[in-house]
Design a binder for these strands. Structure first.
Length: 437
RNA sequence: GUGGAUGUAGUUCAAUGGUAGAGCACCAGAUUGUGGUUCUGGUUGUUGCGGGUUCGAGUCCCGUCAUCCACCCCA
């Protein structure tokens, strides 16, 4: 009985073209993280459920893949990389130095319903700075976000910035701190349900007066400075939280292109462990995909696993959403090249010669493969094209005798003939390095 | 998890309850060392899967799986 080949909802296979694309993006991100001084770490996919769920009870509970292992342990697949990182810091702080900057690119799992760019198994690219709570670390995370998307050649992004603390201060100022979570939830739907419905829902939670002020808070308009002043006034005047936002805004004005970072008081949400600045990043023209990079400051998270607390700030790029957005914008699609040169097989008698040639071209830094069967040249060229290989080497008995090879440029359908292998190598390297020439 | 839409060849799409089709792609030949055009011929399939109604189901009904959209939440 043959088993039906199938995979679970929200889980995916990747064909080479898709996986090569993912790996390209990951490589670019890794280079950028290294450039900022972040170092790589890894943690287990599977952990004790108690560790991952922490305080528990929240929405994340329902989304976690959780089961009993063969030893009767209550285990769960990680649903993000930040919570395991907090556990990691609590366990390894004596082996590390502070401030500690790490990046972590790996898969996480959430058992929620799927949509475009939303899967049950997906890749997050996290970067965090722990052990310091300065302006510099908040600033660097935002700069890291902006630089990462620049390096990825994303045409334009908008980082929406806010501060959990300012909103909490607002709630406290109006004696509504105990309704914080509910208010946040209602506030978050403002754009979808409209002003009136939101006002009504907020009035039920608090009072008409507070509801109107809450709407004024989250709907504040104007420049970064004007919005900041508005929410500062509504939350009872200046405080350390709004001061941080002011400093951050001033620094960013100097460091990133205008319009890249917006102060957006409606971005007060986020996972419940955030305590300070929070951000969400949208790709211009693909806002419907949702935030492709979110994060914030979490000064109490490590305290869950350790007597000592440790401040932290970080963000996470959603690789699969990013890919969905790039696809929507039609950026960087097309078959990516994984191989530079195909050595065609003209004559099986020369098999060893072809592999000898391959070795010398590889030594010159090229990615080379030998076609394993003697077929019509046209078929071998078609194979190269299908696989995205830009160059082909042709060498039959005559060339072998005269010590030459022919190099074919697939895209132009043109040959460079009677080249000595050394000349062909130089030419191939040059063509690969400068493909437009 | 809730609600809605969709599911036919590798792909994009047709087919009043009555023989499952077309373009592109693919394969063979015209063309035994050079693939983009042209011509000739050929294969496309358990109509997502499983039941039911019917003389007869791609079509109607039920279930299931998957995708997309909205909610919820979020990367």
């Amino acid at each position: 009985m043959e088993i039906t080949p199938r995979i679970l909802k929200g889980f995916r296979d990747f064909l080479p073209s898709g996986e090569i694309r993912r790996k390209q993006l990951i490589r670019i991100l890794e280079d950028q993280f290294h450039a900022f001084g972040f170092v790589p770490i890894d943690t287990p996919m599977l952990e004790y459920a108690q560790v991952l769920l922490g305080k528990g009870g929240g929405e994340t509970d329902k989304q976690v893949y959780r089961f009993e292992d063969h030893g009767g342990r209550d285990v769960a697949l990680r649903f993000d990389l930040t919570v395991p990182f907090a556990r990691y810091m609590a366990m390894h702080r004596n082996e590390l130095y502070l401030p500690f900057k790490r990046f972590h690119i790996s898969k996480v799992f959430r058992g929620e319903n799927t949509q475009r760019g939303r899967y049950r198994e997906f890749t997050q690219c996290d970067f965090d700075i722990v052990g310091t709570e300065t302006l510099s670390s908040d600033l660097e995370i935002v700069l890291m976000i902006v630089s990462a998307f620049e390096a990825l050649r994303v045409p334009g992004v908008t980082v929406h910035l806010s501060h959990r603390g300012v909103f909490n201060r607002f709630l406290r100022h109006h004696g509504a701190q105990d309704r914080g979570e509910e208010v946040l939830r209602v506030v978050d739907k403002l754009r979808k349900v409209g002003r009136e419905a939101t006002l009504e829902a907020l009035t039920e939670l608090t009072s008409r007066e507070v509801a109107e002020k809450a709407l004024a808070f989250i709907g504040a308009q104007g420049t970064y400075g004007e919005i900041l002043t508005t929410i500062e006034d509504l939350s009872g005047g200046p405080g350390p939280e709004s001061a941080r936002l002011r400093e951050l805004g001033a620094a960013l004005e100097q460091l990133v292109p205008a319009g890249t970072v917006l102060l957006d008081p409606s971005i007060t949400r986020g996972l419940d462990y955030y305590t300070g600045v929070v951000f969400e990043t949208f790709i211009k023209g693909a806002e419907n995909i949702g935030s492709v990079c979110s994060g914030g400051r979490y000064d109490d998270l490590v305290a869950l696993y350790s007597r000592e607390s440790m401040p932290g700030v970080g963000a996470s790029i959603g690789l699969d959403r990013l890919l969905a957005a790039l696809e929507e914008l039609d950026v960087g699609t097309g078959e990516p090249a994984a191989v530079d040169l195909l050595i065609t097989m003209q004559d099986t008698e020369l098999t060893a010669h072809y592999h000898e040639l391959a070795r010398t071209f590889r030594a010159a830094g090229l990615r080379v493969e030998v076609f394993p069967e003697q077929q019509k040249l046209g078929r071998q060229f078609a194979f190269a094209e299908r696989k995205g290989i830009p160059l082909a080497l042709v060498c039959g008995a005559e060339e072998k005798a005269s010590g030459t090879v022919n190099l074919r440029i697939l895209a132009d359908r043109e040959n460079r003939e009677n080249l000595k292998p050394e000349e062909a190598r130089q030419l191939a390297v040059q063509l690969i390095r400068n493909p437009e020439k």
